[in-house]
Nucleic acid binder design. Structure first.
Lengths: 131, 131
DNA sequence: TCGTTGATCAACTGTGTGGTTGATTACGCT
DNA sequence: AGCGTAATCAACCACACAGTTGATCAACGA
């Protein structure tokens, strides 16, 4: 819950590592134990355990209990939150770009496109908050 | 170009910082200079310059030249690459989950859902590569 | 030419992360 | 009870990153 600020930090930080990304890729096909996850890597099992802790604190995976092994399974909802953040600003930017194209197409008065607006976008300056 | 492995590292790492995320949010409304970007923050201008270098090396932004100022503008294509990576495994996982639901619905023989498959998904084990 | 502004470069510091090895807990098996 | 296995805890090391201050470069303006 909450996690609207720190959750993005941990979430993207968790994805900024090839080992953790490969762990997620593996978990997308079904849950697995720490030993299973550590098998394809050269590093120690403790290191994998730490990686899983990072993923767990980011909310990307959860761990249940099955006897002495703790199967890890993916949480797709957290991944969706991250894509949602990126898509928000990606789409805003594309929309803005389309609007610029419209302006250039309708009015090609003077000064070609060599001056890409140095100090623009000061109007709605209060919208720079995070979610 | 390539950047199919390191690009994801730099890309997600770049997003794993609230300052850089706010910079991206600002740039989604249009290009801006380093001074403009540094204004709403408490940290020094050099720190912002470093953040922009990180974003640039990640391919998320590009810098052009306008007299003595270097306006920064967003590159939405790089953002799309990151969402594409997440969505790939997110969708695979949801599809897998739906398949499990189908199995449970069609055949409720024995052993209820308390055993979430500890060592499953070994069949297509060669698909654990990154893009 | 001189001063100002925009921006970067060059050390330096503190802290966090990724990895290691060694010891410890928890459970299952015989 | 005793042993093997699954997994974590704890201490430690190397390195990269975020931030600082001070100096430097490049371009405009009077």
């Amino acid at each position: 819950m909450g996690a609207g600020e720190d959750g993005l930090n941990r979430g993207f930080m968790a994805l900024a590592d090839p080992v953790r990304r490969r762990i997620i890729a593996r978990l997308s096909t079904g849950p697995a134990t720490v030993n299973d996850l550590a098998a394809p890597f050269e590093i120690s099992k403790q290191a994998i355990s730490k990686h899983i802790q990072v993923l767990e604190q980011a909310g990307l995976v959860t761990r249940s209990r099955d006897a002495q092994r703790r199967p890890v399974h993916l949480d797709a909802a957290a991944l969706e939150l991250l894509t949602a953040w990126i898509d928000r600003y990606r789409l805003v930017h594309e929309q803005q770009y389309r609007a610029l194209d419209a302006v250039l197409a309708s009015d090609g008065r003077s000064a070609p496109a060599t001056n890409p607006g140095t100090t623009t976008a000061h109007g709605t300056s209060t919208s720079e908050e995070e979610s």
